[in-house]
């Protein structure tokens, strides 16, 4: 805690009155001081764990440097789990985008008072525990669950959704949809109505206005929405465990199992591979996202 004290002393030595410049320096220090609690948090709970994963991933049980853990991704089971996770999270992201964009467009057009209500409804599920929501879906989709009970009551054929990829996609879309809606909605409401009027005024019809003005202006929100849905979908193990049963194994489940079995080195190695995929996809996305709309969070 030596550093913040030094900063503090400097501030007292130079009263703010002295001159504008010194006042500004004082302010800068003050702002820096305010960020210290977070910096300590970040170092303790983000940077150090990341370095530990990097260390475990690149060493074996006897602390010798090795790439064996990373190479384990080419193991057929692991590779299949990674490819399936990529596939399912990609499908979920596309479904979220297709659901969220039209909704955000409707919200943009509507009057503001009704909007806060609709936004509330979108966020409402997030007030409930994530696990609880997913378990609820398990109950709904089960062989003897709510949907099938209703279908049986009417003597209709029952559905077998639980423990399939479809159930996992459903769980991902349900849980992560708000993260797609909100950033898109946020950029769309910021588009000045007169900018759209100007496009219409210059001869663009509704379709042209959307493709040439609204869509390009909303890209930052779309990019941030994609990031905020794709990344947690790719790494999830809770949704796939609850809704996929033991049949469907995603890379998140593999990593979780490795840690449970005490294979920290293998788990870390696979995590590093997954991280490369995430960083790679974010690098592609950031090309389209000049003014990032919160995607830096991830």
């Amino acid at each position: 805690m030596k550093v913040p004290l030094n900063v503090k002393n400097k501030m007292f030595q130079k009263p703010a009155k002295d001159s504008d410049k010194e006042f500004k320096i004082g302010r800068v220090n003050q702002v820096k001081l305010l960020s210290f609690p977070y910096i300590i948090w970040m170092v303790g709970f983000i940077i150090i764990p990341l370095l530990m994963i990097l260390y475990y991933g690149l060493t074996d049980r006897d602390n010798n440097l090795t790439f064996k853990n990373i190479a384990l991704i080419s193991d057929p089971i692991n590779r299949k789990a990674l490819l399936l996770a990529l596939e399912l999270s990609l499908i979920s992201t596309i479904i979220c985008l297709l659901l969220a964009y039209p909704l955000a467009m409707v919200l943009r057009k509507n009057h503001k008072t009704s909007n806060s209500f609709i936004v509330l409804i979108i966020i409402l599920p997030m007030w409930m525990n994530f696990l609880l929501r997913t378990i609820a879906w398990q109950n709904i989709l089960e062989k003897t669950g709510i949907i099938n009970s209703i279908l049986q009551f009417f003597h209709l054929p029952t559905l077998n959704i639980i423990n399939t990829s479809a159930a996992i996609i459903l769980g991902m879309v349900y849980n992560f949809l708000p993260f797609m809606v909100l950033p898109i909605y946020n950029v769309l409401v910021k588009v000045d109505k007169d900018v759209i009027n100007a496009a219409r005024d210059l001869g663009a019809n509704g379709r042209q206005t959307f493709l040439k003005i609204i869509l390009p202006l909303s890209i930052p929100g779309v990019v941030s929405g994609i990031t905020m849905v794709f990344v947690p979908s790719l790494t999830t193990f809770v949704i796939s465990t609850i809704l996929g049963g033991s049949k469907i194994v995603l890379i998140g489940n593999v990593i979780e199992q490795q840690f449970r079995l005490g294979n920290w080195n293998t788990g870390s190695g696979l995590s590093l591979v997954l991280m490369v995929f995430i960083l790679f996809s974010m690098a592609i996305l950031s090309k389209y996202d000049k003014e990032s709309e919160g995607s830096n969070l991830w």
């Binding site: 000045d192 007169d194 900018v195 009027n197 100007a198 219409r200």
Partner: peptide, 18 residues
């Protein structure tokens, strides 16, 4: 609709396509 009218508008806050 505006796109079928033979007139153009200059808006108060410019409304340029940024």
């Amino acid at each position: 609709p505006p796109n079928e009218r033979q007139l153009n508008t200059v808006f108060q806050k410019y409304a340029l396509f940024n």
